[in-house]
């Protein structure tokens, strides 16, 4: 397995967020502050706004909700939906649930990985694509399935993958 630190260090220059973005984060924290156990919804909403959850933002949320930073970090790294590195402009998800796997999902993933030059969980250097694997999108009747942003592609064949990606620039 490639050393994660090589990939992570690419994104460690922490981005400056705009004042507007930061105040949105404040508003989210404020909305949930009084509810107990609201860390996860806060993280979900913040990630939807900013695209990812770098440590600086995690510290901000921790202090806003009165929680230790380690607890926030622990939750962010536990759930696969949260990411500490930015997502690409387009997110390509390859379903590896059993039904898709049985219909050739592994080969599709290999082709995607090879074509984009990244492993699942990573983003291309030009920030155009992020590649992820998903466990079961619930569209098992259309296996094997991949999604690119909001669009779902069904009965995908490895030889069609390059063509499919060309539409996303």
């Amino acid at each position: 397995m490639k050393a994660k630190s090589d990939y992570d260090s690419r994104w460690s220059n922490e981005q400056e967020f705009t004042a507007e973005e930061l105040s949105t984060v404040d508003a989210i924290i404020e909305r949930y502050r009084s509810k107990s156990g609201s860390l996860i919804p806060v993280l979900e909403d913040v990630q939807e706004t900013l695209g990812y959850l770098p440590k600086s933002i995690q510290r901000k949320i921790a202090s806003g909700l009165g929680l230790p930073f380690s607890e926030v970090y622990g939750v962010v790294t536990f759930y696969s939906f949260f990411t500490m590195v930015p997502r690409g402009k387009h997110t390509v998800k390859c379903c590896l649930g059993t039904a898709c796997y049985v219909r050739g999902g592994k080969k599709i993933l290999e082709k995607l990985s090879g074509t984009l030059g990244i492993e699942p969980g990573e983003t291309t250097a030009d920030r155009l694509f992020s590649l992820e694997t998903v466990r079961c999108l619930g569209a098992c009747g259309l296996a094997p399935v991949i999604t690119a942003d909001d669009e779902t592609f069904r009965h995908v064949k490895p030889t069609k993958v390059v063509e499919l990606l060309k539409d996303y620039e």
Partner: peptide
């Protein structure tokens, strides 16, 4: 949820609602 299969387990689900891992 936030993408964790284990949260389908009864007590893990409750712990998740409580805002924890």
């Amino acid at each position: 949820g936030a993408g964790a299969f284990v949260c389908g387990e009864e007590t893990a689900l409750m712990t998740s609602i409580e805002g924890k891992r």
